[in-house]
Amino acid sequence: MNPFALRQAALRWFHRHKETQAWALLAPGFGWLGVFFLAPLLIMFGYSFMPRGEYGGVEAGFTLEHYARFADPLYIKILWRTLLDSTVCTLICLVTGYPVAYVVARATKWRNFLMFLVILPFWTSFLVRTFAMIFLLRDTGLVNTLLINLGVIQEPIIMLYTPFAVMLGLVYGFVPFMVLPIYASLEKLDLSLLEAAEVLGARPAERFFRITLPLSMPGVVAGCLLVFIPALGSFLTSDLLGGAKEILIGNLVQNQFTTARNWPFGSAASFIVMALVLLAVMIYLRARDRGNELGAQ
């Protein structure tokens, strides 16, 4: 068969099999995700119900003991601290990120550049950024050295390996996640609404709380989700900035797979993180749909 006829035959086949064509395009990627993303999650879920093996791994059987361990006050405390830290981090990011998004969305000059400055840390190495925090906060770090040289303090303030350092690190890491979606919704905002309100005599604060803020709520909700989720699963920040004192659920999971060698318990903890994430996503979707309904009215 000559190449032209082959090509015609291929085209005819594609016309007859539109749906097959779609699946042919999807198959490699979907297959990869199925084998190396979905299947591992399911196996992990299975592991969380199996007895612990002697040298890591699991043994055959069924048990709920790993989930039951989360009734222990020690683990309740870790879960509670994780939720609390993630919530506080989300709120701080909202309070610091909203004004940034607001000002950048209203900027006429430099808008793209200002936004690029927000995107840049969003993509730069989390490890490097965490190290930058260590460099500033440690006893011989820049902040303490400056304060001592200025005569403000005599002894270095202990900042590294404290809950303060962990929170600062989390906020530092996740603020850009808050700014981006809020900026996206503020940028779309119809300015004539604000002009109309001004003409009708609304004061600036009134204009903000009754027009700008409600209309940017989709961005706010998305931003909160984008900060809350990675904060929930974070362990690098607490690992490097919190020392051994600030154990979050991410650190617990990591411990079970490295030093403690209790894989099923680690799997259970990991699944609790995953469940919390999915819960957050569901709350987000409901909030978004409610927002859409209100917007339609």
Partner: peptide, 29 residues
């Protein structure tokens, strides 16, 4: 194609899954 919306939704799951969960589950596999 059938299940297009579902496929789109599915593609967002790896994005929202915490890295530690992805890493651990792959190690298990």
């Amino acid at each position: 194609f059938r299940g297009r919306r579902l496929m789109e939704a599915f593609l967002y799951i790896p994005i929202v899954t915490p890295e530690i969960v992805v890493g651990i589950s792959l190690l298990i596999l």
